[in-house]
Design a protein around this nucleic acid. Sequence first.
RNA 1: GGGCGAAUAGCUCAGUUGGUUAGAGCGCCACUCUUACAAAGUGGAUGUCGGGGGUUCGAGUCCCUCUUCGCCCACCA
Length: 1029
Amino acid sequence: MTNAETYEIPNRFDFGTTCPALYDDWIQHHCFDANVSPGKKPFTIVIPPPNVTGALHLGHALNNTLQDIQIRMHRMMGFEALWMPGTDHAGIATQAVVERRLKEIENKTRHDLGREKLVQRIWQWKDQYEARILGQLKSMGCSCDWRRTRFTLDERCARAVRTTFFDLFSKGLIYRGKRLVNWDTYLQTAVSDDEVFAAAVQGHFWHMQYRILSPKPGEPTHVTIATTRPETMLGDTAVAVHPHPTEALNKHEQLLRQKLSEANAKDQPAIEAQLDELATRRVELLPLLEQLADMARDGRHIHLPIVDRKIPLVVDGWAKPELGSGCVKVTPAHDPNDYDVAKRCDLPMINILNPDGTLNENGGPFAGLSMQRAREKVVAKMEELGLLLKIENREIDLKHSDRSKTPIEPFLADQWFVKMDQLAQSAMDAVTDGRVKILPPRYANGYLDWLGEKRDWPVGRQLWWGHQIPIWSKTFESPTQAASLQFQIESMSERIAGLLYVSIEEPATVHVCIKEEDRALEVKLESLGLIRQEDVLDTWFSSALWPHSTLGWPEANPDLDYFYPTSTLITSRDIITLWVARMVLMGLNNLQEVPFREVFIHPKILDGYGETMSKSKGNGVDPIDVIDKFGPDSLRFGLAWLCTETQDVRMPVQYECPHCEAKVNQTKENRQSPTVECEKCKKRFSTQWAESETDKVYPKAPVVSERFEIARNFVNKLWNASRFVILNLEGYQFEPLQSTSRLPLEDQWILSRLATVTQHIESDLRAYKYADAARVIYDFAWDHFCSLYVEMAKPRLQDPASRSQVQRILAHVLDRMLRLLHPITPFVTEAIWQHLAKLTHQRDLITGETSSPWIVRAPWPEANLEHVQPEIEKQFKHFVDLIGAVREIRSRQNIPPKDRVDFSVRCSDSLKQLLSPMSPYLEAMAHATPTQWSETPVVPSIVAQVSVPEMDVYVDLAQFIDVAAEIARNEKLLANLVKQIQGKEGRLSNEAFVSRAPADIIEKERQALSELVSQRSATEEAIEKLRKL
RNA sequence: GGGCGAAUAGCUCAGUUGGUUAGAGCGCCACUCUUACAAAGUGGAUGUCGGGGGUUCGAGUCCCUCUUCGCCCACCA
């Protein structure tokens, strides 16, 4: 009975049923559980928690594959490897998704539902998507310790958030201030800068005049200002002019001149034009500006039309004399720069907006109108007043909300801030002194630059989904009333116990922060008239605590002691500042220890056009589609293969037609269509956009990429090579190997290669060089193991004398290869491992150790350095060359595969000793029989000849020769040789080269030349001979 | 405006500190169902290494510059 009958191994790896079953087995046997083990070193990674907004895409698949590779490798290396899983509540993103659906399906707003009900709905959404996300991770084979799964809004994380917030608040690092927020009038919420995109729109530039109050003789009567948003003039509280216009203009000119001197010819005219304009301006405008600056210092005022307000003329550097009229209107409540001016000049701030985007009572006659209507009215009124000078057309970059796609209104709101100076500095130090290593190192720049600004972190969000700020506040008429309440609270027993902290915000607001969830205390505060802050915290506040909150902080516990700081963080570059930097500073603040020692930034996955994949563009790929089509191992190997250090991953994607399996390229045109027609079978299929019933009747096409075919083919190759080994292990007997030196060349060679490759993979993976590792193992498995060693093993397996030795080496090499591959392709390696385990327990050539039942827990292979023989690896190339030479002749002479040929080799004696024992392989692998190995072989009259380094190969072609083809080929070769010889001779006769280049390089060139010359004469000889036939 | 990165075969990408004739996979052409694997095997064709300049005995690799593309940050009365 053969093994094939015993084990019935199919010739395709059935990943569809095998992988989920294997995964269940791993879980059941606690293969991924990590526990505090004092005898072992910990290796910890916290997952960048995916947002529960939606399903994972290929970018996540890459991110998680790279983490799992590290985790699995370190687990095998004997570390206690913990991969901490979880998801992020993703504040605004999630709330926006749920609100949008609420609107679409039930036509309700969040206000119709109320806070509690809406939050309930979002929890339902979260449960649904969390399950989907975790399912996706499991399908990919991620070996997380699922018992520890966390969510940034669960009780444990909430406790960490409360503790941190309380700590910062009581240190005085949290304060409330005014800030301009990006107001989304559609969603009626503030959105962060990251959730805003700029789009160019056609707009206008309105030039208007304000009247100066009681001008003295000789003074101007009006100031001119220009704006793209005339309606905001209703909120103006000043007009600003530069304090020293002449100086500023000189400085600007100096700058321009410097630029001119550095600019290339093409850019110069533009700069010169600017300089010309500057000259005119100097004459026409500068005196006026100087005069205005003086008037401003004199405390003069201006009449703001329409609302009839008296506003000051002020001096401030923000007003640029080189721009526009040189004067700028100041609208502190609706423009970030104007806000800064107002703070500097101590100006009032007038908010003219309601949260829904209409004007409030400060809008004067236009209160209640939308911004758009108000704009028209203001312009009309100014024109009527004769104060409108001109209107220019102008393209303006307008900020839009990413969530609602509507224009953003800058809006002044109360906002909670975290003071960043000390915190930011601590996080900068951690990177500059190397406690946290960012890889590739170039990404450290962005991190340091961003933190270096030390801008305070606005942490409040006007949302309902998130950690509500644990502050109760009350504002009084007078500071004394506030002080009295403060005193009252200060004397509460909870204050003494450190459960609350009270502070005063000038002039008369009392804020009380409660450390822990405590309903009784809350009621007590509420009875004193204190009201809880409505806002929730920025999502990144809880994410910043992720490395320690997930380990149970603030509770002191063994997990935290053992697994923190974590070993490495693997993430994508767009959240280096938002997330990575904040984790570092929070880790340092809460635990006085960095959260991780290394940060690896991996490439991004782009579509075929080089655009980032996103759900809204419709070019995203669900990893599950790829898994269904190619299997999880191919997904993982394919991603690792593409993960190079410098380049993003460009990945053209296709729809796979569900009718005929034809590939339809995804284009910018069809990627957002609900249905697409197959180019081949002309039937329609649906896409992720299909929502209507009419569209949904079409079967859905998975989106895949042929980038994964390499990996699929590789996994198949591995499967079949393993199948061959397993089918040939019948009668396997273990016997320890005494010494490798008595093994045949090919055995020594494959063991040497294995050791070399093992070293490479380990160092590559440790350095996050995933693509390099994948290529090394790919070449080894495919070219060296399959194409050469297995082919050479075939005849030896038939020979009882050599059979058991070859079996042992095959089993050993396969065993090691599987282990090396397991982190990248866990399923197929585990499946093969199980088969192998049934046939042979002892596979280690030297020790005969009994192998582990699970590859997932098998020890990582150590490179056996005694097996490394560079000389043999080099010599083996001669064999490969020889076989290639014979095959080439066969191919170009069209010799049928079944016909045997004879050949002779001209080579040195030492090469003969090396290669002649390998004649049987030439028989088996090239269907060719060597008849002579000699320095002076007797060459048959009719031959085809090929020269390779140190050998000339002559194939006896008595019955086959195609003389014309042979001559043509040799002549082409000759021409090439002559060209190369000329190049080398030129170089070697160049005095400069010979005298300056290092001796070894010159020697190499000399040898190469003599090799080429001998090839040339062999070829000339061959042509000569052929001509005579 | 500041910074970072990329441009190599039809496509997607490798190419260590400068050193023989620049590689891989897919695709293409030809041949092969040779009992592990046609998702395979064997052979072949395909490159002004984005343009220009420089350093060097020698440049895909280092320097300057231009062009195109991508990303990040800042700013745009």
